[in-house]
Design a protein around this nucleic acid. Structure first.
Lengths: 346, 346
DNA sequence: GTGAAAGCGCTAACAG
DNA sequence: CTGTTAGCGCTTTCAC
């Protein structure tokens, strides 16, 4: 058994109250005893029992995080990176991360959140992939547990942090337009997610800002997975005249789309330019390297934890934080064929 | 405040012990009272306080998991998938996952393990990426905390689970040999990790089994990251005559290697065939699709939890479990150029 | 400055 | 079958 407060108290002939105070830096305890206590504690290898402390203080120093499982099957590197950054930040602030990975449908996810969202188990929670009217948000509000959302939440009372989806999408599409593309397809995320909507809005506004029409046949909803991107791209190709460029709402779907294009015998970017979103490491390593919108993933993780800690301390109102993103061109985009040929002809 | 056992007991004019027993399915309690108790509990929305229970039972129903951070930066989808599967399995068995993501060097990782490995905080632990003489294993043994390793541990007292690294590597390299390759490079993982050694051993034995020499200039150590794979491939290319095939010890390094080959103007597989290891989803979506060794990632996660639960129950000795892997050919491999040309001339 | 005592919510002997 | 009694290890009034 590892030593307890009482063990230390016994040796020093003190009460455990005093030992507790000495260790927690209570100013009322004499400097001399503080020194004696802490050096003995060190010597005995004392480590406070987090469970007992949690029971007494009603604070667990633990943050809950539910990562999306279905249908992404957790294969999106974006989440692993986010998770790592959040975990690291939490640990630095003395918090631990409690992880839940619900399987299956929306109901399963909500249930997982409900199970995890026990104020006696965690002090706060990080939510990902918010939907338009997310039941989970209502649930947490009802419970009264502090939380922060990775992604934009409509309720102004809710704290959230997000990359600038609309601006990033705008920049990406605007670049395509500036290269001369006029027929630009879009593969969106699940329609009910706020990130999907925001990125589509960036696409829409860039298109209409340039006076370009949006052909519904070139808009296809994906599910943020590779197979989803593949299927969506295939549908766009099959729907008739292929676009000269496609804006895909996340990187892993873009990989699927690139594959579909190759299978259809279309070259990237000669026939079709492709742009993704997220800026995961893998994007630089596909062929051709994928143009994408870099999200500050590490920063998102760190800030999410920081905002949550503020929320948990109870001070200040809800925080809404939009982090800038950076469009990063690459060889997956080029001028449309007609234009390219014109240039070649000089 | 959510209701406690005492609240239920008060309403029913029972003692909290009885209520506790009724809820935990103790056979001694009368069927009638059990019904009354559980229906009231349900009605009042009673949820046991995990913290209090943990303090009383000295069991936390929590599993600790440290994911490797540096230098992989958590960008390897293999770990996210493993994490998800383990989390899911844990939850189904009534356990929660406690996550730690140490930053930086080996010392930081060991410290993170030491912090997490508190028997009063978690009941057991899953370790990843074991090294040959891993201090963390000694540490956990010293603490007496049950744990299971993802990867092979040399100490027979330690439970572990692993894909069949050597056989998988052998099959992959053997396939290359059967296509006529004789000069096959190898990019290994960090030399101190057991998985690196085992995969290299598969490579070595396939080569020597076919009577092929191993050229040290074509063996390069990577670090399981994309940039690492890129650098290693570059070094092999620069070292002199390029090999006609390369076996890369994980998929993300293979992506880096493919990029290095392209940058050097070498075609895949016409000039150089590439095989990876792990079977992450992304492998199917690069161009050309990467031949790789499929690990049963989901199964590894599930089994790791299952073995750990057995260890924690104290019954049975250490378990050592090797799961079969499956080599999956794809378009990133083909016959060597000379042979291909010979066939063409046919 | 320090100690005594109560209690966080639950489980686990030990009685009856 | 059920109640009583002790804790699990820590924090936190309230006294002195």
């Amino acid at each position: 058994m590892s030593p307890t407060l009482q063990d230390i108290a016994d040796v020093l002939k003190l009460s455990k109250s005093t030992v507790s105070r000495a260790l927690s830096g209570d100013p009322r305890v004499a400097e001399s005893t503080r020194v004696r206590v802490s050096s003995l504690a060190q010597h005995m290898g004392y480590r406070p029992n987090a469970t007992a402390r949690a029971l007494a203080t009603r604070r667990t120093n633990t943050i809950g995080l539910v990562v999306p499982w279905a249908p992404r099957s957790l294969s999106d590197p974006f989440y692993l990176e986010f998770l790592g950054a959040a975990g690291d930040a939490a640990m630095r602030s003395g918090y631990s991360l409690f992880l839940s990975a619900p399987d299956g449908d929306g109901a399963g996810a909500v249930r997982a959140h409900a199970e995890l969202a026990d104020p006696r188990r965690i002090d706060g929670m990080i939510l990902t992939e918010p939907k338009a009217n997310d039941e989970r948000i209502a649930l947490l509000h009802g419970i009264g547990l502090p939380f922060v959302v990775l992604g934009v939440a409509s309720d102004p009372e809710v704290s959230w942090i997000s990359g600038d989806n609309t601006a990033g999408a705008f920049d990406a599409v605007d670049h395509l337009i500036s290269l001369g593309h006029t027929r630009i397809a879009c593969i969106t995320g699940p329609p009910d997610q706020t990130a999907s909507k925001a990125r589509f809005e960036g696409y829409r506004s860039a298109m209409s800002g340039a006076g370009l029409p949006i052909d519904r046949n070139t808009i296809e909803a994906g599910d943020f997975t590779q197979p989803g991107g593949h299927t969506a791209m295939r549908a766009i190709i099959d729907s008739g005249r292929a676009p000269s460029a496609v804006f895909v709402c996340n990187d892993v779907m873009a990989f699927g789309a690139m594959r579909a294009l190759r299978e259809a015998g279309l070259a990237i970017p000669a026939d079709v330019s492709v742009v993704g979103f997220d800026g995961i490491a893998m994007a630089e390593y596909v062929d051709p390297p994928l143009a994408t919108v870099n999200q500050p993933i590490q920063e998102l993780g760190r800030m999410a934890v920081q905002i949550l800690i503020e929320q948990m301390s109870g001070e200040g109102g809800p925080a809404h934080c939009v982090l800038p993103v950076q469009y990063r061109p690459s060889n997956s985009v080029g001028p449309p064929r007609t234009r390219a040929e014109a240039i070649n002809r000089g």
